[in-house]
């Protein structure tokens, strides 16, 4: 953006248009993965998970690496879980993108504010995995 327009800052509406595109991309990817996984599981007749009492998800689905491993084997549950992870990652990606946008606007105050949000999100993810 700045390479072609060296003297003009990206306007808020332009930044917002990119934010919107990013969110649409996240939603679409999630929808494709979830729908594919769901349809495959129905075709293959995977039995319904017992949802009471609480036992926790099947082994391997509590970490991103486990989900990825299952999804790359094209297991229906793995594809659905990956779709859910993509969905969770989208708001985080949106905050990261905002950080870039505010830096391009040279809005120092909001670069700081956005960095704090990103750091909090990262620590939430991190502590979630070592909890």
């Amino acid at each position: 953006m700045t390479a072609t327009m060296p003297n003009s800052k990206p306007t808020l509406s332009k930044v917002n248009a990119w934010l919107a595109r990013l969110m649409i991309a996240g939603v679409c990817l999630c929808a494709v993965l979830c729908a594919t996984g769901l349809v495959l599981s129905l075709i293959r007749g995977v039995p319904r998970a017992t949802l009471k009492p609480f036992k926790g998800v099947a082994e391997g689905f509590t970490t991103p690496s486990g989900v990825w491993a299952s999804a790359t084997r094209l297991e229906p549950t793995g594809l659905m879980a990956l779709g859910v992870l993509v969905l969770i990652a989208t708001p985080v990606a949106r905050v990261a993108f905002s950080l870039v946008a505010f830096s391009l606007e040279r809005d120092r105050l909001y670069v700081v504010i956005t960095s704090i949000v990103l750091a909090l999100l990262a620590s939430g993810m991190f502590f979630g995995l070592v909890d």
């Binding site: 979830c34 599981s41 949802l51 926790g56 998800v57 509590t62 991103p64 969905l87 939430g124 502590f127």
Partner: peptide, 28 residues
Amino acid sequence: IGVTAAASAGVYLHRGQLEPTLCAPVAL
């Protein structure tokens, strides 16, 4: 609210509360 929810999603994933077969139709 998407950001707020994503902030605690890591903890719920680790605790096994995100059942894919339930979350997929809910998300769609």
